[in-house]
């Protein structure tokens, strides 16, 4: 079977799922005629026609909110928000309406809606095309969020999301679109179960927890540390909400140390949430070392801005790769460890 890139896996899965289920439709900006700004939806207009592939006006609230009524009358909507940075006009519809509709109606209606959105830095996108803003949605029970880091999961999680009865926010990393390739399983129906993290590498000394692009940084760091005899267990979260806390806890119970790595600023971020899961209310895990590696508290977490900002960002990018390494090393070697909820790596 031929190798596919991450974005090709997304595109293929959309083709397959739309062919399989005539109630699905795509709606988003520049997704039809243009095939998407990244070409994730290439060929879908030609295959499924303008009735099911809707080039929408620049109306993010509509894109997200119309899916509620469409789902109520029997559709399985697949909206796309062109860049995660532009999801804020749709925030209201996602958070207040989609995520709560099932609860509000006492289970009368579920919302089988999958919202795809490209996020993340490293592609020179600037302030409004680089954010890793998934943490904005962490405080929303009723919503599901997945963020594949591999080609297989890009397909497997997308298929699972589309077939799920819950509203899923599917974060696709821009830097991974064309930078990784893999073969998909022979079984065309394969899914990656939502809600389950993946232990991508086993180790006994320290647990590295990440997702998306930074998962690959964690894997690289683990390989380098292995040369020094430090065995890092690497968890790829895959699902951000609800977090697979059993897998995370189990791993950290074994290693006693955790480093959480993400692109977003640390403040109010997923790292802090996982640190809380690990430390709060757990006697067994009370002697942990938990570190969060994220961006400084600046309003962009992409890798390139302009001028001085750009240098700052680039500096941070270099730092970031290094930080994961340094931290994994520090966390692994620091014995005995003083209890700390988080290390603030950049202070």
């Amino acid at each position: 079977m031929a190798s596919l890139s991450y974005i090709e896996a997304i595109n293929r899965t959309l083709h397959e799922e739309m062919a399989r289920d005539a109630t699905t439709f795509l709606i988003g900006e520049d997704i039809g005629i243009y095939g998407g700004v990244f070409k994730a939806t290439r060929g879908l207009l030609q295959e499924f026609g303008p009735e099911r592939v809707i080039d929408s006006p620049i109306s993010e609230s509509l894109i997200a909110g119309m899916t509620v009524g469409a789902a109520m009358v029997g559709c399985r909507p697949l909206p796309e928000i062109q860049f995660a940075d532009f999801i804020s006009p749709a925030f209201d519809q996602i958070v207040q309406q989609l995520a709560r509709f099932r609860w509000r109606t006492n289970g009368t209606y579920s919302m089988p809606v999958t919202i795809r959105t490209p996020y993340g830095g490293g592609v020179g996108g600037g302030v409004f095309h680089s954010q890793s803003n998934e943490a904005w949605f962490m405080n929303v029970p009723g919503l599901v969020m997945v963020a594949p880091s591999t080609v297989r999961d890009a397909a497997g999680l997308l298929r699972a999301a589309i077939r799920s009865e819950d509203p899923v926010l599917y974060w696709e990393h821009k830097k991974l679109y064309r930078s990784i390739k893999d073969e998909l399983p022979e079984d065309e129906e394969f899914v990656t179960a939502i809600g389950e993290a993946h232990v991508a590498r086993e180790g006994r000394d320290v647990t590295a927890i990440s997702f998306g692009y930074t998962h690959h940084l964690a894997m690289t760091a683990a390989e380098r540390l292995a040369e020094d005899g430090i065995e890092v267990e690497v968890i790829d979260l895959r699902t951000l909400l609800p977090l697979d806390t059993p897998t995370i806890k189990e791993s950290v119970a074994k290693t006693g140390k955790a480093v959480i790595v993400h692109e977003a600023p640390k403040i109010g971020g997923i790292g802090g949430e996982i640190a809380a899961v690990l430390v709060v209310g757990s006697l067994v895990l009370a002697c942990l070392a938990v570190a969060v590696v994220g961006t400084v508290a600046w309003p962009v977490d992409g890798s390139r801005g302009g001028g001085e900002g750009g240098q700052l960002v680039q500096g941070s990018r270099r730092l970031r790769g290094g930080i994961a390494l340094t931290f994994l090393a520090v966390a692994a070697l620091a014995v005995p460890l003083r209890r700390r909820d988080t290390f603030d790596v950049l202070n």
Partner: peptide, 25 residues
């Protein structure tokens, strides 16, 4: 009769989506 959202105009957008759904289906 859809359950109204207290947030103004969410029902407007949802009804628009329902109309779209009817047409598409």
């Amino acid at each position: 009769v859809m359950q109204p959202a207290t947030s103004i105009m969410m029902n407007w957008i949802a009804a628009t989506g329902a109309a779209f759904g009817y047409k598409m289906l």
